[in-house]
Each structure stands twice: as C-alpha cells, then as structure tokens.
C-alpha cells in the first residue's frame, strides 16, 4: 500500500547480495499486503463470510447427514476453498491495479518474478488463514475431526498449486475489460487437476485409506505445484510488462 518495496542500496550487487535483495523485496511485498489487510480487514472478512455461506448452502443443498458426510466432506471443503480463493485472488490483484501499485512495483529495481512470488505468498497466507478458521467451524458443525496431519498437508499442497496458477491468471484478468467475471473462467479449467487430486487425497485421509491408495494423488499434487510455479515464474514478466 504505502510505497514500493524498500530497496535502498541497489548498486551492482554480487550473487549473494542479489539473492538477499530479491528475498528482501519478496518479504517487503508480502508484508505490505499483510499490513494493509491488518488495517482494513476487508479481504479476509469477505473471504471468510463467503466461505461460511458456501458451506451453509451446501448443508441444505446436499442434506449433509451422517452417512453422506463421510464421502462429500472433502468435496464441500475444496469447492468452498476454491470459491473463496478466487474471491481473494481477484480482490488482491485488483487492489494493486486500482491504486497504481503495480506500476510502482514495476519501477522498482528488482526482478519482476519477485512481484509474482510476493503476491503468491500473500495470497497463499490469506487462503490458509481462511482454511484455518473454516476447518474448526466445519469440525464442530458436523462433528468430524478434520485436524489430521495428512489432511493438513493436502490442504497446504492444494492451496499452493491453486494460488500458484491463480496469482498468474488474476494478474492477467484484472488488466482486462471483463475482469470481475474472467478469473474463474480462466482459472477453473486449468486448476481442475489440482482440485481433483486434492479432493481425492483428502477423502482418502478422511476415510483412513492406506497410503498406497493416496500417494498417487499426493504425487500429482506435488508435480502440479512444481510445474506451475516454474511456468508462472518464467512467464510472469510478460503479464506485467508495460
């Protein structure tokens, strides 16, 4: 919000110094988002209320009785996270665009991929915060213990992949005429593998399946995360170029 990342002595840095500068600007970007959010709380509260509403609607749409609950919980959770995530991604990038921060960031003497990582980490933190609040509420409402190590790992990996693509695509979506409706249309077809894998492995952990049955899905999640972080890192330059 207030000012570009603090990069003071940008002479001709060596490799180590350059790396430190790079990490520092990522940290500054993440911190900027968090500080702005801490002050206004508009993004998190919107995502959170939205997520709870989605769960409420599912409750009546699916009649989440004890029998169906075991099989559909993972699906309900991931649809909720995906929708709330889209909301957050769109808003966080639109804010940069509207306040002219993106242009300011582009002037900063730092590699543009730092902007990508900064925004992606910020988005990931917001998404995880929402998940951290939704999980216990869901656990209490439906009497299911969602705090299992495996499930939490899946949620982390799934959110990471979702945010990795989402940050890249939202940076494009906000620069178009139809920006409010475009992000889900761009993001969902590309994010389908990560959502399928996340739902499947979550269900696996919730039903206590054996690791051999879950691990292909976990591998897919990992591959997705690595591939799309790498791709986004390579093409992000072209998305913010002016």
């Amino acid at each position: 919000m207030d000012g570009a990342p603090v990069v003071s002595h940008a002479k001709t840095p060596g490799l180590l110094e350059g790396m430190r500068l790079y990490l520092r600007s990522i940290a500054a970007l993440v911190w900027k988002d968090l500080a702005a959010e801490l002050r206004s709380r508009e993004l998190l509260s919107a995502m959170l209320v939205f997520a709870l509403l989605v769960i409420l609607i599912f409750n009546f749409a699916l009649e989440l009785d004890t029998r169906t609950r075991a099989t559909v919980t993972a699906g309900v959770l991931w649809v909720t996270f995906a929708f709330a995530g889209t909301l957050g991604l769109n808003r966080s990038m639109a804010m940069e665009k509207d306040r002219g921060c993106l242009d300011g960031l582009l002037l900063a003497p730092v590699d543009r991929s730092a902007i990508y990582f900064g925004k992606a980490i910020g988005n990931l933190i917001f998404m995880i915060l929402v998940e951290v609040i939704v999980l216990p509420i869901y656990s209490v409402l439906y009497n299911i213990n969602l705090f299992q190590g495996g499930l939490l790992l899946v949620i982390l990996l799934g959110s990471l992949g979702y945010v990795a693509v989402g940050t890249l695509l939202s940076a494009m979506a906000v620069q178009t005429r139809t920006r409010d409706i475009l992000l889900p249309i761009l993001l969902f077809p590309v994010a389908i593998p990560v959502l399928i894998a996340a739902v499947k492995s979550s269900t696996g952990f919730l039903q206590g399946l054996e690791m051999a049955e879950i691990s292909p899905w976990l591998n897919l999640l990992l591959v997705y995360d690595v591939v799309f972080i790498a791709v986004a890192f390579m093409v992000f330059d072209y998305v913010v170029e002016e």
Partner: peptide, 16 residues
Amino acid sequence: VYAIVGFISVPLTFMS
C-alpha cells in the same frame, strides 16, 4: 501465456 499454461495443464488433467 494462457495458451502455454492451458497446454501444460492438459496432460495433468488427463492423469488426474
């Protein structure tokens, strides 16, 4: 960018 991202996602979609 979208053509590249979309193309890469297709084999992953197929696998999943």
